[in-house]
Design a protein around this nucleic acid. Sequence first.
RNA 1: GGAAGCGUGCCGGAGCGGCCGAACGGAACGGUCUUGAAAACCGUCGUAGUUAAUAGCUACCGUGGGUUCAAAUCCCACCGCUUCCUCCA
Length: 420
Amino acid sequence: MIDLNLLRENPEAIKASQRARGASEDLVDQAIEADAAWRSALQNFETLRAEQNASSKQVAAAPKEEKAALVAAAQELAAKVKAAEANANSAAETRDKILWQIENVVIADIPSGGEENFEVLKEVGTKAKFDFEPRDHVALGELLDIIDIERGVKVAGSRFYFLKGWGARLELALMNMALDLATKHDFTALITPTLVRPEVMAGTGFLGAHADEIYYLPADELYLTGTSEVALAGYHRDEIIDLSNGPLRYAGWSTCYRREAGSAGRDTRGILRVHQFNKLEMFSYVKPEDAEAEHLKLLALEEAMLQACELSYRVIDTAAGDLGSSAARKYDSEAWVPTQDQYRELTSSSNCTTFQARRLNVRYRTEDGKTATAATLNGTLATTRWLVAILETHQQADGSVRIPVALRPYLGGQEVIAPK
RNA sequence: GGAAGCGUGCCGGAGCGGCCGAACGGAACGGUCUUGAAAACCGUCGUAGUUAAUAGCUACCGUGGGUUCAAAUCCCACCGCUUCCUCCA
């Protein structure tokens, strides 16, 4: 949720952000109006309630013979209070409904425009070149007997797969390497629930326009999370956390579930876009003034992982129109996928400023003892999808795949995955 | 799944329908004392909304409803916890 004070004091800033996103500016005016209406309804109610409280005290103090008359008067007042309260409540509801639709205020210097208007911040490494016809990850997975898509589909439907043998181990190796890196940088490992309550899912901002991306279990009123970010954001919900010793950092491991509604026909081949995968996610709670620096820290760790996997990649600053509703800025890093002749997203790191924390009511204590809304950030350190880039980049003419040096310790020293 | 009990502030723990935002104890913080510390003593010590206001007012005692002029206190539902039984690893 956006900051109410900002709405009252500088609605133009919010409008400018909505404009950059290609979202509704009108919502901002509606919110201001609804806020004013709520405030006046609230004051009306509070005045009446104060009267009622006073008259109740009179009743209590009055001598017996006067009580009946006082109670009669109080009864009338009680009815008024009830109506005024209902009024104030519905005004608050109206206001909140509008407020929750307004997306996070973007950081001023990010590119505006849509998906294609990103800015490339850097390109790192050299794109893999082959003196043979490179196989795509599906072919490699089959040849090496490490990815079994056919049986995944048989068991669970399209966009499901089995990782087998070295494929399974490679994924675990990747997760473990990521976890080691994160742990070294002050992130606490956390294995998270993958089912969450509606309040948590809504609080993280995932139930907006893209709600149909999410699996929902109506019988239990639970959502399956598409990223451990959801559980990690909910972890400190309704808490006043201690940031006096620096940020709280978590490395969350979980399986992730995505319906991929609306992407029918896209990336249907292989394990690039699937309904279920594993991910190691960094998540930081920081003071708002530290958020941008933390964002760069997350990005640096992501790059360290990509480099450890010996991948060629670029980093982009996502345009406003392509940001999730909670993000004020998003850096993606995309690895070169040789057989697709393009970069594909491997990590995504968002600075959600105070937007998410305000919805989830996560605060911290400032130096002068007051409470303030924390800022939250998240970023990917490894996912199943990385296997695509790793396999394709490090393949050799005979179909074997060289394992990046940094990953070998996690695979018992194995250097190559070769066809049987 | 069945039965009973319980859910109060950072923690423990009181609380007759009005005098309770809440006794008391501990922790924490500030101070006095001390060379320093401990002890002792004094004081402060929930969150949020509204408001120009750290004035006032309002709300919050698991959550949501209800009864009442008035509810932490009564009623209902739900959620959670504990114990016992059952069940199952």
